[in-house]
């Protein structure tokens, strides 16, 4: 498709040169729609790389405002953005990097009433949330709608990444059927996170999304990549699909999204109002 402008030919030249991408691949990127949950530590590198790569439409779900404690790792936002909605700060940064990209802000809490509608508008979803209820909500919605999902979680010096393609491999609930009891696994707010670890893990998510759009290589389907930043080592763990999984199994018992606040209460949790971003 040579309806690229001169500027686009130059901007995307290092992609087009790749045998696996070419002009056709670059057109696919420009035509694709990716939803990022959370414009935080993971969402920042994902958003930056997807925008730079020319992913045509990028939705961002985040209801928070930029806080000074975010800036150590959330590289979509700047000191001048303090107090601004993260969605808008992210949109500005990403559209500055690449005016070919349309960033759609979704400035609200995801819950069972809106998650299916939001996810339905996109081809691929990226989970960069900072709490378990949102992660289960997004996983379930993606399974129900058959949308590929790049999942990652980080804490301190550690990161976990996997790619969920419903029907082709395990989902998040196959890995962890239920969330841990509230308070057991600390948040980055409590336990800390090395900023660059978020960058490494988020960049892996971005690469996975681009590969899925281009239909090249092997995605992290059925594999959990565990990154240890202190040891500077990656371990790849093969995880099978669970045919008894409550959402993607042969006889699913979860057939509608579970509202995450209710989700916590159902399990007797005392977790306070979940935030979508850390």
């Amino acid at each position: 498709m040579s309806d690229f402008s001169e500027a686009q030919i130059e901007r995307y030249s290092r992609h087009i040169i790749l045998r696996e991408v070419g002009g056709k691949g670059q057109s696919k990127l420009l035509d694709s729609r990716v939803l990022i949950i959370g414009a935080g530590g993971l969402g920042s590198p994902v958003g930056l790389y997807l925008a730079a790569a020319g992913v045509g439409t990028i939705g961002i779900v985040d209801s928070d405002a930029v806080d000074l404690s975010n800036l150590q790792r959330q590289i979509l936002h700047a000191t001048t953005d303090l107090g601004r909605p993260k969605c808008l700060s992210a949109r500005e940064t990403m559209e500055d990097i690449n005016p070919d990209v349309c960033v759609v802000p979704h400035q609200f809490h995801l819950d069972s009433s809106n998650v299916l509608d939001v996810v339905a508008d996109y081809d691929i979803v990226v989970d960069g949330a900072d709490n378990f209820p949102t992660r289960y909500l997004v996983n379930d919605a993606c399974v129900m709608q058959g949308k590929p999902l790049s999942h990652a979680g980080i804490l301190r010096f550690e990161g976990h990444v996997t790619t969920i393609v419903p029907g082709r491999g395990p989902c998040y609930r196959c890995l962890y059927p239920e969330p841990p009891p509230p308070g057991l696994v600390p948040s980055c707010q409590e336990a800390g996170i090395l900023g660059a670890v978020a960058g490494i893990v988020g960049s892996i998510q971005a690469a996975e999304v681009l590969k899925l759009i281009l239909r090249i290589g092997d995605a992290l389907v059925g594999r959990l990549l565990v990154f240890d930043g202190l040891e500077m080592a990656f371990r790849s763990i093969e995880i099978p699909r669970d045919s008894g999984c409550s959402v993607c199994g042969d006889r699913p018992t979860i057939t509608a999204p579970i509202d995450y606040e209710e989700f916590c209460r159902l399990r007797g949790g005392t977790e306070s109002k979940p935030e979508v971003q850390s």
């Binding site: 959370g38 935080g40 530590g41 993971l42 969402g43 989970d127 960069g128 949330a129 900072d130 709490n131 378990f132 992660r135 990652a152 979680g153 980080i154 804490l155 550690e158 990161g159 976990h160 890995l175 962890y176 969330p179 841990p180 057991l184 696994v185 948040s187 980055c188 336990a191 996170i193 978020a198 959990l224 565990v226 763990i237 971003q277 850390s278």
Partner: peptide, 10 residues
């Protein structure tokens, strides 16, 4: 034996 817990952080 490897023991992994999910990570919530993002």
């Amino acid at each position: 034996i490897t023991v992994l817990l999910p990570l919530a952080g993002g």
